[in-house]
Amino acid sequence: MKISNGSAELATEIVGEGPDVLLLHAGVVDRRAWRPLVERLAPTNRCISFDARGHGGTTYQPEPFSRVGDALAVLDSLGSSSAVVIGNSMGGRTALDLAVEHPERTTALVLVAPAISGAPQGDDSPEVQAIDEQMQAAEDAGDLDLLNRLEARFWLDGINGGAEGRVGGQVRELFLDMNRRALAAEPTGDEDRSTNAWERLEQVAVPTLVVVGDLDYDVSTANALTAAQRIPGAEVLRLPDAAHLPVLEGNEACLRGITEFVAAHRP
């Protein structure tokens, strides 16, 4: 189904019945990345996922917009007053921004390798700097196929000890398809980035689970773990054999941990 907000028609998928769970995807994938988790949650929850602007099947015209605003539009359209919100990377940033700006709409948070608005940049390792330079060169040359392969190496395999091609088969093909669409997408317009969740982490007042993969890049992991220390009562799930997209990987410990957390904090 499509849900309207501004010029955007947000491609939205609803699976299951029960308390609402809103799933916000990373910037290199689309809503299809949540399928392994939706299979676990849908028997007892209404799982709501949608493609952000610039991803998947969502259509739009360039305009000023807010990712939190899009998330609220989806919840409002479906008559959802609040939800467990699960976000990965870019979606984690949106989930946190939603929690600090509209705490009444969030009953619990799951932050998977979250980006965090206002977080420090940190110092990248030589390996990260090297692949960043390769990705920038591919982007400058307009070689989206090479850029897509490099991003699979970085985000899917994991630059911190994950061997190239660590994740293969249908999962890798799905990543390459989702990210290829994102790389080729038209500009979305100016995104509202006025929220600084990093300065407000202590205000998060709902049960929170932070998930990190040890194969992810160091700055992402460090910021996520710092956030977990500062969010009151936050739990941490560390995955020694996963990178930035553990749900897409189908990492069993990740899927089980999130499923148990959601079950424990059903409204």
Rank of each mutant, 00 (worst) to 15 (best):
K2M: 07
S4A: 14
S4E: 13
N5I: 10
L10G: 06
L10T: 00
A11L: 06
A11M: 07
E13P: 01
V15A: 03
E17W: 06
G27Y: 06
V29N: 12
V29R: 12
R32Q: 14
A33I: 11
R35W: 10
P36F: 06
P36K: 15
V38C: 07
R40K: 15
L41F: 07
L41M: 08
A42H: 05
R46W: 02
F50Y: 15
A52I: 12
T58K: 12
P62C: 05
P64V: 11
A73D: 00
L78Q: 00
G79C: 02
G87W: 12
M90G: 09
G91Y: 08
G92M: 08
D97W: 07
L98G: 02
L98C: 05
V100I: 11
E101M: 13
T106I: 15
L109H: 08
V110Q: 05
A115H: 08
G118E: 00
P120V: 14
P120E: 03
Q121W: 04
D123P: 04
S125G: 11
S125K: 12
P126E: 02
I131D: 05
E133L: 15
M135F: 09
D145I: 09
D145P: 11
L147D: 02
R153S: 10
W155I: 14
I159E: 09
R166G: 04
G168Q: 15
G169T: 15
E173T: 14
M178G: 04
R180Y: 11
L183T: 12
A184T: 09
A184D: 03
P187Y: 00
S194G: 15
W198D: 01
E199D: 11
R200F: 01
E202M: 04
E202R: 12
Q203I: 07
V204C: 04
V204E: 02
A205N: 12
A205H: 10
V206P: 06
P207R: 13
P207C: 09
P207T: 08
L209I: 01
L209F: 02
V212C: 07
G213E: 02
D214W: 04
Y217P: 07
Y217C: 10
A222D: 10
A222V: 04
A227C: 10
A228M: 01
R230M: 12
I231A: 06
P232A: 06
L237M: 06
L237T: 06
R238N: 02
L239S: 03
D241M: 00
A242Q: 04
H244F: 05
L248S: 14
E249L: 10
N251R: 15
N251P: 08
I258H: 06
T259R: 03
V262F: 02
H265V: 05
R266L: 11
R266E: 04
R266V: 08
